[in-house]
């Protein structure tokens, strides 16, 4: 059965970029304001789920050729890796630090090691959520 969904496809092309931008903003505004790795990861995962909704699994798998279970494992490795990195400097596990740097374009910027940990959390959340939703939709076929 053919269904005319031109409006949905056209709108999705624009909306996905807005959602991805908002997800990256939530991820970067983490440790001082509302937001953080978990929420940013959920918003990024919802953008990917919207792509799967408007198109089908085969064509999205061609354009996003990631194994999302591998993405989740990489995220957990990165998050715990920053935790173990603090042991090398003689401080307790999961200690975080920050400093202010002069960057060329941004001016005085606060750079923290929490951001690397949050990047790991983002990868883990995106991988797990997309894997759960895809396996839920695949079980119906089999």
């Amino acid at each position: 059965m053919k269904i005319n969904d031109v409006i949905l496809r056209t709108i999705t092309r624009i909306i996905v970029f807005i959602i991805l931008t908002f997800g990256v903003y939530l991820f970067l505004s983490g440790h001082n304001t509302p937001g953080g790795g978990f929420i940013g990861g959920l918003v990024l995962a919802s953008a990917i789920v919207l792509l799967y909704l408007t198109s089908d699994i085969e064509s999205i798998r061609k354009s996003l050729p990631f194994d999302f279970k591998l993405v989740a494992a990489l995220g957990v490795l990165l998050a715990t890796g920053t935790g173990f990195g603090s042991i090398l400097f003689g401080v307790p596990f999961m200690s975080q630090t920050f400093a202010y740097f002069e960057l060329p374009i941004f001016g005085k910027t606060e750079l923290t090691t929490v951001t690397i940990f949050e990047a790991g959390v983002v990868l883990a959340v995106v991988g797990v959520v997309v894997t759960i939703i895809l396996s839920m939709s695949e079980s119906e076929e089999a």
Binding site: M1, K2, I3, Y52, L53, S55, D56, I57, E58, S59, I133, L134, S137, E138, E140, E141
Partner: peptide, 11 residues
């Protein structure tokens, strides 16, 4: 359509 995420769309 009765299905939310399709495996392969027919259009």
């Amino acid at each position: 359509r009765g299905v939310i995420i399709e495996r392969k769309s027919d259009n």
